[in-house]
Design a binder for these strands. Structure first.
Length: 508
DNA sequence: CGAATTTGACCCGCGC
DNA sequence: GCGCGGGTCAAATTCG
């Protein structure tokens, strides 16, 4: 019987299914070439089967499968054999169908792999192009090293796991999802209708409402009440509720060097509290926007514990009122960043668009300035204007998953290109994440000081609306190509360009 | 004197 | 259930 196995055509089936890389090729080719050999093998097999039939080797059943097609020519007329042969025929047909199906699937997978490879190559080329642009603007040798390092990291990562190249696809698919779930269109009308708060505000205020409802007093809450209650009264979007538990607030944090007690972002703020935060000898000040009665925007200002020249300003919420040009730059940036976080977290149920994933899909060359921290209690985008674009500093730290290069080719060039251009003025745009690694890499950890252009860095936020708007546009474009903020930012650029840079830092 | 700031108390969520 | 820490409130205080 063993000789039969070695010669029988069926022997090749396990090979095709067990073989490693050979399987893909041999499995397909051998299966069809097998038919050519079949007559020879089948004769041998059938002869052997007849001879050995009395032994009732079940194993022969499988062998007969191969010989089924020619069984009639060899059939000796035994009825039991005929029945068995019919069954064998059926099984053979089933196996053949299954094999064909596997072949089809194999080809489909091959096609997918090819497509992924093509996408990866295109992304890599695109990244290289962007890097070159950045290098031209920065014209620093270190940057080329950085870019090279980035590209190499990306390529290494791509090669490491099969799942990694798929991420771009997920990211590409991400945008429509964001479009669907994002309330950015609503946000756009916020300035006209305070009650029409976006998710950002909703989420921010929901937790707050819980408390305030318990209190139900506070004359000041009159101003807050409309906004506070709006999300509760109209929880039209279940997404909001689902998000509330996961991420109650989205926060945009700006790190900048400034001697001033707080950076001038064009808005009017009123201090309503101050606390000593744990782990930081510097007090944390709480401000709320007073440009409109019910404006939900608040910000926290705190100096970095390690480097007190660094001012950390965290913004929450979106202004529900028209902003002066001086404030638009920062507002658009923070709003876009907050939207990015909120949007990315919404369909968290499917696990594709949680902050972790979102952070992983951030621009690779935006690695110097913005950090996404999705760690509890709420996600934060940190725009770090204190860092120097020193590549070694930046790219020694980030864990591998930060390095997935994902630049939607159809979306990035303009906005991100402009951001890159402005990056030359500052440090760069970094999006990384510490979702599960808050303990390993603190986004607020002080970065090495590379320049004393503190005012330049902080003033840059407001003094260069191009940058902030471009950053906002870039962020928005990453999330969804048609994010309203893109258009807004363009307008804002136009608006702010004319009244640029003088309104930035009265304190400085 | 009105507005803004300060500051202690309070509330709430979370971890133990 | 309790303590801790973050966030907010609002009376008191300061400032212009």
């Amino acid at each position: 019987m063993f000789p039969v196995n070695s010669n029988g055509g069926s022997k090749e089936e396990p090979q095709a299914s067990d073989g490693g890389e050979r399987r893909a090729v041999l499995g397909e080719v051998d299966f069809f070439s097998e038919k050519k050999k079949k007559p020879i093998n089948e004769e041998q097999v059938n002869a052997f089967v007849k001879k050995e039939h009395s032994r009732e080797f079940n194993l022969n059943t499988g062998l007969q499968l191969v010989t089924g097609s020619d069984e009639s020519t060899v059939d000796d007329g035994i009825s039991s054999d005929a029945a068995e042969d019919k069954r064998a025929k059926n099984e053979l047909a089933l196996l053949q169908i299954e094999l064909e199906r596997m072949n089809v699937e194999n080809q489909r997978l091959r096609g997918m792999l090819t497509q992924v490879n093509n996408n990866y190559t295109a992304l890599q080329m695109h990244l290289a192009t962007l890097m070159q642009q950045q290098q031209q603007h920065n014209s620093r040798p270190a940057d080329s090293t950085q870019q090279h390092e980035i590209v190499e990291r990306k390529s290494e990562e791509k090669k490491q796991g099969n799942g990694v190249p798929i991420v771009p696809r997920q990211f590409m698919d991400l945008a429509p999802g964001v479009e669907q779930t994002n309330s950015s269109s609503e946000e756009r009308t916020i300035s006209e209708s305070p009650n029409n708060n976006n998710n950002n505000n909703n989420m921010m205020e929901l937790s707050r409402n819980k408390r305030k409802i318990g209190r139900e007093e506070t004359p000041e809450s009159e101003g807050w009440a409309p906004n506070n209650k709006a999300p509760k009264l109209s929880p039209s979007k279940p997404i909001d509720q689902s998000n509330e538990s996961a991420m109650r607030k989205a926060r945009v944090s700006v790190r900048a060097r400034s001697e001033a007690p707080m950076i001038a972002d064009g808005c009017q703020w009123r201090k309503y509290g101050q606390k000593m935060a744990k782990g930081n000898p510097c007090p944390r000040a709480y401000y709320r926007c007073t440009m409109a009665v019910g404006c939900p925007v608040r910000k926290q200002v705190q100096r970095c514990a390690e480097d007190r020249t660094i001012l950390i300003t965290s913004y929450e919420g979106t202004h529900n009122h028209p902003l002066p040009p001086a404030a638009m730059a920062m507002a658009s940036t923070t709003s876009a960043a907050a939207n990015m976080l909120l949007s990315g977290s919404m369909p968290s149920a499917d696990g594709l668009m949680n902050p972790n994933f979102l952070a992983r899909t951030m621009l690779p060359c935006s690695s110097n300035m913005a950090t996404i921290s999705a760690s509890a209690p709420f996600p934060t985008v940190t725009l770090d204007l204190t860092q120097n674009p020193n590549p070694l500093q930046q790219f020694q730290r980030p864990p591998p998953q930060f390095q997935v290069p994902l630049i939607p080719q159809s979306q990035t060039p303009q906005a991100f290109g402009q951001a890159l251009y402005n990056q030359s003025k500052f440090s760069g745009l970094q999006m990384s994440q510490d979702f599960n690694e808050a303990s390993q890499s603190q986004p607020h950890q002080p970065q090495p000081l590379f320049s004393d252009t503190l005012s330049a860095a902080t003033a840059a936020i407001t003094a260069d609306p191009n940058f902030t708007a471009a950053l906002a546009a870039a962020i928005s474009s990453i999330i969804g190509g048609s994010h309203p903020n893109n258009n807004n930012n363009n307008n804002k650029n136009a608006n702010v360009n004319t009244s640029n840079s003088n309104n930035s830092f009265p304190g400085n």
